[in-house]
Amino acid sequence: MSEMNATDRVGGTKPPTLQLSGLHKSFGTVEVLREIDLTVERGQMVFVLGRSGSGKSTMLRCCNRLEEPSAGSIFLEGQDICARGVDLDKIRRRIGMVFQSFNLYPHLDARRNVTLALRKVLKLGRDEADERATSALDRVGLANRADHYPGQLSGGQQQRVAIARAIALQPVVMLFDEPTSALDPELVGEVIAVMRELKDLHMTMLVVSHEMAFAREAADRVVFMADGRIVEDAPPEQFFTQPSEESTRAFLARYSA
């Protein structure tokens, strides 16, 4: 296991929760990520904005190596997760991920959607896993839906179960890949409420989303991507009122119009 501490160079403090450094990704000859540097400090909520095709989702999916980076490194609490010989499954249980299309297991009820990894990955006993699942479902306000199958839940409820499935593993960081894009407008609020609660609990989060109002109100930093690069990285107030880049201004103008 290569324990390379990325911040030792800067000082003796705790390494950032997530750090991407010089990340590249190509699909064939198409370069979708170029020279990405991004740091997410502990307890921070970082929002990633950008047009579709700008590489946001690919960058997010590189963070737990659902997408294999072509070059560069990713550090999780200082540990290089792209290093040779790392146990990827062990890394992934520390990184929660929430998908645009929920991806709940349709053949399992809400409780067993949450307990599957607790039982098989963390090797918890049935009772302990059930207990943890109940408390995770309770956190997203769905303890009373534990026996429901995904098909019996609304989109917003499904996404909240998916969040419960991820947080039950007590990850050090949560990745959100457009968590509200597949939802009817009236269901967006309940998912955002859960994310806001996670933020209040100081969960570290990297969020790809188009919910600008939420970004402005809750994010610690907003990152703007275009053509596979990060072109702007600023606190939300500055980002939305006086962005430094022309492409950010154009994007914001189009979205606020």
Binding site: N64, L66, D89, K90, R92, R93, I95, G96, M97, F99, S101, N103, L104, Y105, P106, H107, L116, A117, K120, V121, A162, R165, A166, L169
Partner: peptide, 25 residues
């Protein structure tokens, strides 16, 4: 594919994903 991705993202191995998530469906 999202089913396997969700399972792998929680740390399930490839064979656990096959047995508990993909094959039953």
């Amino acid at each position: 594919a999202g089913q396997s991705e969700a399972a792998r993202s929680t740390g399930l191995t490839q064979s656990q994903t096959l047995i508990h998530v993909v094959l039953p469906q």
